[in-house]
Design a protein around this nucleic acid. Sequence first.
RNA 1: GCCGCGAUAGUUUAGUGGUUAGAAUAGGGGACUGUGGAUCCCCUGACCCGGGUUCGAUUCCCGGUCGCGGCCCCA
Length: 422
Amino acid sequence: MFKAPRGTRDFLPDEMRERRYVETCLRRVFEDYGYREIVTPTFETLELITAKSGEEIKEHLYHFKDKSGRNLALRPELTAPVMRLYVNKLQFEAKPLKLYYFGSCFRYERPQSGRYREFWQAGVELIGSPYPEAEAEVIVLAADALDRLGLKNYELAIGSIGTLRAVLEESGVKGEDQNPIMSAIDKGEGLQELLDQKNVGERGRRILMGMLELRGDKDNVISSAENLLSDSPKALKELENLKTLLAFLEEYGVSRYVLDLGIARGLDYYTGVVFEIYAPRLGAEKQICGGGAYSLAEVFGGKPVATCGFAFGFDRLVLALKKERKSIAPSASRGCLVVPMGEGMLSTAIKVSRFIRKNNLCELELGRRRLRKALGYADRRGFRYVAIVGESEVERGCVVIRDMESGEQREVEIEKLKELKL
RNA sequence: GCCGCGAUAGUUUAGUGGUUAGAAUAGGGGACUGUGGAUCCCCUGACCCGGGUUCGAUUCCCGGUCGCGGCCCCA
């Protein structure tokens, strides 16, 4: 017996129906906001991935040499490929440029529930607007998608890496030197040593540590932050930006969130607002969405451009929905099963199925079952109608159409089945 | 990569150092030759893999594989 490789899954028809339902809903919301779909390759050059995330990422990648010795990697996420595509082909499009994607990603991680080695991401990138209304729209879009899917139990946390970076900058830690500190904040360890190393003074530390504590209600967090940053003009400016963004969220009707100025996300390219969405019922792997404002185009050789976006962990989203309700996409009974009464009726039944299929989902009974068994099969498979092809009706040029829900039956002329709309 | 738990029909499970490994459910058929969801009967169908201990291992031990709960990381 062969098994699917570790961390991968087969999706059975019932599950695929649910996944497609969620996927379709996400696509619709993305498109309602004006995003257009793109598809990038399943594998990329290894250098693209490491340029974005560093050499350490190789530990978590499926990477390999192809037969010509090219270093390649299965994509671990889609932001880098999308930005590569942007730099390659779309830099000179009218801005802002709104793109969305849906695709599988691969990571070499220890699998557990909500964490797979092949998993799906659905997300958007909004390229070319540096303004808070763009960032606000992206957050709103994520929340709106969850609302439209009917997910009740989720927590939106908004932070500002821009503010943290400004604090560091005012303490003399500039540019890339900030990254290890951001990463330490995210991990929650090794921060003090790094601050020693970079000679961050008493004042800078006090402000930074204070900021990391700020989590909760918007008004409280903002006013505390303003106090803390009263002598830090650059950080205050970032905070102003955040306040504007939050005011826009209010206009959109999004007020269900916590402000958490300690979110660092540990990723070097985030520059401004960041946000995360959790489905608390999922346990350890509860983050279903992550995003924010970042700066990546220049890493891939393009002109710097303000970008924001997010990615949903599609599988986790589906899991979260499943935890909340029995059925994600209730399947209505539909279509018609054509049942020949005996082998003699088969060729007529084939014609009947061909006619009905012109306008309807239609399946021919292929098991040579008796009528009783065929009706049972139709019932279990959720057919709304059964067309019974029996000798006595066929002699009159008719078949019986049975409605499986009401039990009502009527005779329909075979020739008229071409126009039949069930 | 680390810590812990687990693995028996398609699914949910019972049980055992020597058993025809039991059930429920699903699947096929029949009772019921052209009218479903019920009932009854029959059939199909399982001890994850490899080593060790043993007269004998599905059961005990070790390793692997896969899964699960955490850590790390992330989605």
